[in-house]
Design a protein around this nucleic acid. Structure first.
Length: 575
DNA sequence: GCCGTTTTCGGCCCGACTGTTTTCAGTCG
């Protein structure tokens, strides 16, 4: 079951969409969108709040608080039901089609009675759409194309997929003569777990050569837009990539703009307005009635933030989830960074389902400059892994005999949490490991109560130091398991069990939102790669990005600690 | 509908590109 906050947030977002489609006040739309976001990210369960409690949520005032209460009491909101009655749900679906927004969707419904994607496809086929006032052959074509994209998945890709494309494009554009600077921005720079499109920013006096090179890249299947300062393409793999070219002296303002998020940008621009300034991708300007606006700063992000009375805000925080308020109060977290990570605590070898040998994994870890490294192959309860006590002990002997220089080697295992919350071995055998990760690998559809009890019991096992990939989600393939996250996080904090941030790009588990919730209970975290091959150790960057999005500092991440402190954390659990 | 170092009313981010248009609406980020 979804958390009440998510249900309420979805409802508020739906209301915002319905107001937008029916041509309501755009500012009202934004109010509901903001409230939806604030509710989704709010730490307390909204179903336990009264009016005053609800109004404590940013962007929730008397009117929205009352609607939330109405929903919690009766299961519906009259105002929303009224709009639902005038606009079929299918019309809202239409706005998911790229290039088709609320105004056109409403026109299609009002003029043609279209209220579903198939009905729209019909209307396109027989030419009714192109004959509508304000529409035309090109618009009809674009909508048809948009439907096709939506059908092909149209969705988001893993961060690793987007990163590979971005790094290729950045390298290609940076190599064009006249390019002063080039970087990726957008949700990729903010390190979101999935990416909708790739945003690239470049600095140059003359944009034309860069735009030409961009639209002719071998990966390009289709040019969506081609202008002087902005072009968009779609790659053969279906990913949209936008290139924005600005003058080198406005790099910072453009990078800030192009990094987003959109809600963050709006908040920052509002602060500018209150200072009598105007912020756009071309810089921070002092607004003047008589003459042209004068440029204040634009060259670096730091300068722009500083002129607005803000410290530089790291991109992973830029989601309008309280970072503006924290920045104004001088309370931004000192985020954990990749360089802070002293070792990986969840990795595999070819003894179980890995493809690299113990020696290869250790050598690669050592080359990364780690101070410690844990090998945690699967334990004996997963039959497909064919693990035995003897094989595990032999691996331990081999590990102990290795010389990894200044890097300490830890012998661990990834235990399987059985349906009742037990693990593969008894205390005597577990005591022989330096470290145990425990994770769910089966029985994903237990009831919420069973799954909660299962994970709490695993936390209570004195030999379990880390809960691996706690929700077991696989992005785009498997939903997270259902459990009472607050209960599990309370147990983790109480028992001194770390929650993993699994860096594998299709997991990123915990995700940023759960990290934010867990840290409120004082939970500690381990940022691991769950590597099954040497190349996977590089996935750490995505786990670090997720941790940063969860506002984590070095002190909250056990594998950013010196080995002695990590060992104390492990043994404190066991005594 | 929310909000306040121009406060309880009157604001509310800003610009690029496209398509259907003779000056702008819609969409996107």
């Amino acid at each position: 079951m979804a958390r009440p906050n998510e249900v309420v947030a979805a409802l508020l977002q739906e209301y915002a969409d319905l107001i937008s489609i029916t041509g309501g006040d755009a500012f009202k739309v934004r109010s509901y969108e903001r409230a939806a976001r604030a509710v989704a990210g709010y730490h307390a369960d909204v179903s336990a709040l009264d009016v005053d409690g609800l109004k404590q949520i940013p962007n929730v005032g008397a009117s929205i608080a009352e609607k939330v209460l109405e929903f919690l009491h009766s299961g519906q909101v009259e105002a929303i039901e009224k709009l639902r009655a005038t606009v079929p749900a299918g019309v809202r679906e239409l706005t998911r089609i790229p290039t088709l927004g609320p105004r056109k969707a409403m026109t299609l419904f009002r003029e043609l009675g279209v209220s579903s994607v198939p009905a729209l496809a019909h209307a396109l086929d027989d030419g009714r759409v192109a004959r509508l006032k304000g529409f035309g052959p090109r618009t009809a074509e674009n909508i048809a194309h948009g439907i096709e994209l939506l059908r092909r998945g149209g969705g988001r890709v893993l961060i690793s997929t987007a990163m590979a494309v971005a790094e290729e494009v950045v390298a290609a554009i940076a190599a064009v003569p006249g390019c002063a600077d080039c970087a990726y921005a957008g949700s990729l720079r903010r390190m979101r777990d999935t990416i909708g499109d790739v945003d690239i920013l470049a600095a140059a006096r003359d944009s034309a050569p860069l735009m030409a090179a961009f639209t002719r890249l071998p990966q390009v299947a289709e040019v969506i837009a081609h202008g002087h300062t902005k072009s968009s393409v779609r790659t053969i793999a279906g990913l949209q990539v936008d290139l924005r070219v600005v003058a080198p002296e406005v790099w910072g303002a453009a990078l800030l703009y192009f990094t987003g998020s959109k809600p963050h940008n709006i908040r920052v621009r509002e602060i500018a307005v209150r200072h009598g300034l105007k912020l756009s991708e071309y810089g921070l300007f002092r607004v003047s009635e008589e003459e042209d606006d004068t440029l204040v700063v634009a060259e670096t992000e730091q300068e722009v933030y500083e002129k607005l009375g803000l410290p530089w805000i790291p991109p992973p925080l830029r989601e309008d989830r309280g970072e503006i308020e924290a920045a104004l109060a001088g309370e931004l977290p000192d985020l954990v960074a990749g360089a802070d990570i002293r070792g990986d605590l969840h990795t595999h070898t070819d003894l179980t389902d890995g493809v690299s040998t113990l020696a290869e994994m250790v050598a690669t870890a050592r080359a990364r400059g780690y101070r410690y490294y844990a090998v945690t192959d699967h334990a004996k309860d997963m039959p497909m892994q064919r693990m035995t006590d003897e094989k595990m002990l032999a691996q331990r002997a081999a590990l102990r005999a290795m010389d990894a220089g200044r890097m300490a080697l830890l012998h661990g295992t990834e235990l399987n949490i059985d349906p009742d919350g037990g693990v593969d071995w008894d205390a005597d055998f577990l005591a022989g490991f330096d470290l145990c990760v425990a994770a769910v690998h089966s029985h994903f559809h237990q009831s919420r109560e069973q799954m909660t009890r299962r994970l709490v019991r695993a936390c209570e096992n004195p030999y379990v130091t880390i809960i691996g990939h706690p929700t077991t989600r696989q992005i785009g393939r498997r939903e997270p398991v259902d459990f009472d996250a607050d209960a599990v996080f309370r147990a983790a904090a109480r028992t001194g069990t770390a929650m993993e941030i699994n860096s594998y790009p299709d997991r990123l588990d915990l995700n940023d939102e759960l990290v934010l919730r867990a840290r409120r209970y004082g939970v500690k975290f381990a940022i691991d790669t769950d590597s099954h091959a040497t190349v996977h150790l590089d996935f750490l960057r995505y786990g670090v990005g997720t941790a940063q999005r969860g506002w984590l500092s070095r002190d909250e991440v056990i594998n950013a600690w010196p080995l002695a402190r990590l060992r104390r954390f492990i043994t404190a659990n066991r005594s």
